[in-house]
Design a protein around this nucleic acid. Structure first.
Length: 421
RNA sequence: GCGAGCGUAGCCGAGUGGUCAAGGCGCCUGUCUGUGGCACAGGAGAUCACGGGUUCGAACCCCGUCGCUCGCCCCA
């Protein structure tokens, strides 16, 4: 192997030209869907004041405890590479007084996020998310809308075999009581819990529900369900949301084990998973976070959103047979034979490009045969051939690589046509 | 943070102690003196991850390091 001195940092990846078509496709579709629902793009900095994430994501969460890229900058401030997209958007909402805009304020983002994790299939230290946030309206119809955006995105990408899971985890009024019921229930079965779950029993009983160990799963089937312990407000919200989802005809399943790892979620939570649910299978996750903005120091402002992982979407696009359009290649390769012709070919290529037409000059010391091979290998649809004969006559040979047909045309005539189109 | 597997040219991949290492893809050239996709022939490209050890001798055995992959945890 060639000795490589530098390599991309662990958990990061170069995105080579061959990979780009997936990204372009996903971004184009995501932007299209978001636009149809009236969401406007927002870009926030790659790093923020560390406290923004400590306050929002939650002090006890894994993200804050052991996954953040936090460092002191040269001025002595603690900054953190964005580990998720929601908190920065909420910060921007507050900072720019967006409560004065018509509510809800609908925004989407497309950005890299950073978490110091152990890399694995579908998990990276730098990954990219497309996400959507609707801030300032607590109505369940907004929940339904956001879920529909997520669902539409999957459809628009051609990802058909995905499952939409929905749940409500209540709010500050009803969740504490539910969590206690859950704790009591599991405490009664402590001997059958896996070691991790015994730990969770103390720290975060909700997490007991999505344990993957078989015996724990069995217990989870019989466990108290959050939707049975909702307060009146959450109950009404949940019922209305379900009604809206029914009206929209979204094929959702209520999954009472669905909980989320970030502290700020309230009421509605949802996920989209591909059928072959492996370890890192979730391609979209989101929920409502009515307490978050207030927690960041703003007036109480409801919000709901979701994020998708672009790397995971790409993975699923490759697995599925969903058609992904190729990146466009230049229309012309300008082949040439002889020194005079090379100069003429350069001029021709320049003229085409300045007219906005894709053209590359066949390079260097290659014979015409080699140049044609190259046109073929690059998937270029037309080869233009210039040699001494053509120069003398002021012509150019235009070869259609797909039809294997060619004709000689006056150069000026060709340029007038090609440049115009 | 815990557990497992793996590391041979750009990519895939044979080779499990004895001529400084097969084959395939890709790349370049020629057969075809100005023409691609096929075929044939040739060529370039490998300190066999790195370091140490065992041995007369190591890609192959042992130890360490690094990296990658997979699972858990967690999450998109």
């Amino acid at each position: 192997m060639t000795i490589v001195v530098f390599r991309a940092p662990r958990g990061t990846a170069d995105r080579l030209p061959d990979e780009q078509k997936y990204w372009r496709f996903i971004e184009a579709r995501a932007v299209g869907v978001a636009g149809r629902f009236g969401y406007g793009r927002i870009d926030t900095p790659a790093f923020e004041d560390s406290n923004l994430f400590v306050r929002s994501v939650g002090e006890g969460t894994d993200i804050v405890e052991k996954e953040m890229y936090t460092f002191e900058d040269r001025g002595g401030d603690s900054v953190t590479l964005r580990p998720e997209g929601t908190a920065p958007v909420c910060r921007a909402y507050l900072e720019h007084g967006m409560h004065n805009l018509p509510q809800p304020v609908r925004m989407y983002y497309f950005c890299p996020v950073f978490r110091y994790e152990r890399p694995q299939a579908g998990r990276f230290r730098q990954h990219h998310q497309f996400g959507v946030e609707a801030l300032g309206d607590a109505d369940p119809s907004v929940d339904a809308e956001v879920i529909e955006v997520a669902w539409e995105l999957m459809g628009s990408l051609g990802l058909r075999d995905v499952n939409l899971l929905v749940n409500s985890i209540g709010d500050g009024d009803c969740r504490p009581a539910y969590v206690e019921r859950l704790r009591d229930y599991y405490a009664g079965h402590q001997p059958r819990l896996c070691p991790d779950c015994r730990e969770r029993l103390e720290r975060n009983p909700l997490r007991l529900l999505d344990c993957k160990v078989e015996t724990c799963r069995a217990l989870g089937d019989e466990a108290p369900r959050s939707t049975d312990y909702l307060c009146d407000g959450c109950r009404e919200h949940w019922d209305k949301l379900a009604g809206y989802l029914d009206v929209m005809g979204l094929p959702y399943t209520v999954d009472h084990r669905l909980v989320r790892g970030l502290d700020y979620y309230t009421r509605t939570v949802f996920e989209i998973q591909p059928p072959d649910a492996g370890g890192q299978s979730t391609i979209c996750g989101g929920g409502r976070y009515d307490g978050l903005v207030a927690q960041l120091g703003g007036r109480p402002t409801p919000g709901i959103g979701f994020a998708t992982g672009i790397e995971r979407l790409t993975l699923n696009l490759k697995r599925s047979e969903a058609p992904v359009p190729d990146e466009p290649s230049p229309r012309y390769l300008v082949a040439n034979v002889g020194e005079n012709a090379r100069t003429a070919a350069l001029e021709l290529a320049v003229k085409l490009r300045r007219a906005g037409v894709g053209a590359i000059l066949s390079s260097g010391s290659r014979g015409l045969r080699g140049q044609m091979r190259q046109a073929n290998a690059l998937g270029i649809p037309y080869a233009l051939i210039l040699g001494d004969d053509e120069i003398l006559k002021g012509e150019v040979v235009v070869r259609d690589m797909i039809a294997s047909a060619q004709q000689s045309r006056p150069l000026t005539e060709f340029l007038a046509e090609a440049g115009g189109g």
